[in-house]
Amino acid sequence: YKIYPYDSLIVTNSISVKLPKDVDRTRLERHLSPEEFQEVFGMSIEEFDRLALWKRNDLKKKALLF
């Protein structure tokens, strides 16, 4: 996945969300650098992957990456 800054990946309720063209809309968190991922989620990507799907989705919603 290509890395993008968190600010360019957050999704708000506005209709005209302009995400970069090559971003996987269903896995926005994968486009964060490991350092920024840790900062946003408070855990590593590996720890995040071990969580239940509902928990990952809940965290993504709170981080505006859903």
Rank of each mutant, 00 (worst) to 15 (best):
K18S: 15
K21M: 13
R25D: 07
F37I: 02
D22A: 04
E47V: 10
L64S: 10
L9W: 01
I15T: 15
K62M: 09
P20A: 04
A63R: 06
K62Q: 10
R27F: 08
A52P: 15
K61T: 08
E29F: 01
V40D: 00
H31F: 04
T12A: 11
P5E: 05
D49V: 05
D49G: 08
D7P: 09
I15M: 14
D22M: 03
R50G: 12
K55T: 11
E36M: 05
S44R: 13
E46N: 12
P5N: 05
T12P: 09
S33A: 11
V40W: 04
R27T: 07
Q38K: 12
N13D: 14
E35K: 14
L51R: 03
Q38I: 10
F48E: 00
R30D: 02
K2F: 06
K62I: 10
L64Q: 13
I45W: 09
W54R: 10
K62C: 09
F66E: 07
L9G: 01
L28V: 03
V40G: 01
A63L: 06
D58V: 11
L59M: 12
L51K: 05
W54L: 08
L19W: 09
R50I: 10
K55N: 09
I45S: 08
K55G: 04
V40L: 06
P20C: 04
K55Y: 10
A63G: 04
D49P: 01
M43N: 01
L32Y: 01
F66R: 04
I45Y: 08
L51M: 09
F48N: 00
F37Q: 02
I3C: 07
L32M: 04
R25L: 13
E39A: 13
N57M: 10
T12G: 13
E36K: 06
S44L: 11
E39I: 14
F37V: 02
S16R: 04
I3Y: 09
M43I: 07
L9C: 02
F48C: 00
P5V: 03
P34L: 11
S44I: 09
I15H: 15
D49W: 06
P34V: 15
L51G: 02
L59S: 04
L51H: 06
L32F: 01
L9K: 01
I45H: 08
P20T: 04
L19E: 05
D22H: 05
P34H: 11
F48L: 02
T26F: 12
M43F: 05
V11N: 10
L9D: 01
E29Y: 02
P34G: 09
F41K: 00
F41G: 00
N13Q: 10
D58T: 09
Y4M: 05
A63S: 05
R30K: 10
S14A: 12
F41D: 00
L9V: 03
L19N: 05
E46Y: 10
N13W: 05
I3L: 06
L28W: 03
E39V: 13
L28Y: 02
K21L: 14
E47I: 10
K18E: 15
Y1W: 11
S44H: 12
K62F: 06
G42E: 11
L9P: 01
R30G: 04
